[in-house]
Each structure stands twice: as structure tokens, then as C-alpha cells.
């Protein structure tokens, strides 16, 4: 069976994609609990700056 090669550079093939580890972390509970706390602080900081 002949394998089809890309005919040229297609940007969509080279878009950064998450590694399996990153995908795992996205739903890994202990990590996400920490991220949840950090996210809340970061959001309050961004939103709070404008309110000053």
C-alpha cells in the first residue's frame, strides 16, 4: 500500500499539540485542585486591577 506524503508544508500539521502528559494533567484531580485555587487568585488579580 502506498503511503501518502504531504505535498507541502501544511501549517495545521505543525500546530502545537499537548503531549499525553499535559492531557493527563488537565484531568488529574490533585493537580486540578491546585490549579483551581491558583486560577481563582489569578482571575481576581486581572479583574481587580481594572476596578482600582
Amino acid at each position: 500500500m502506498s503511503q501518502q506524503k504531504p505535498t507541502g508544508f501544511d501549517e495545521r500539521n505543525f500546530v502545537p499539540r499537548p503531549t499525553r502528559f499535559t492531557v493527563f494533567l488537565r484531568n488529574f484531580l490533585p493537580f486540578q485542585i491546585v490549579r483551581f485555587l491558583i486560577l481563582n487568585i489569578k482571575i481576581l488579580r486581572t479583574v481587580g486591577v481594572g476596578k482600582k
Binding site: 488537565r26 484531568n27 486540578q32 486581572t46
Partner: peptide, 10 residues
Amino acid sequence: LTFGEIGLAG
């Protein structure tokens, strides 16, 4: 102050 993140926490 400008950031993005994807995950369950969101």
C-alpha cells in the same frame, strides 16, 4: 495579567 489555561479546574 493576560493568560489562558485549559483543564478541569476551568
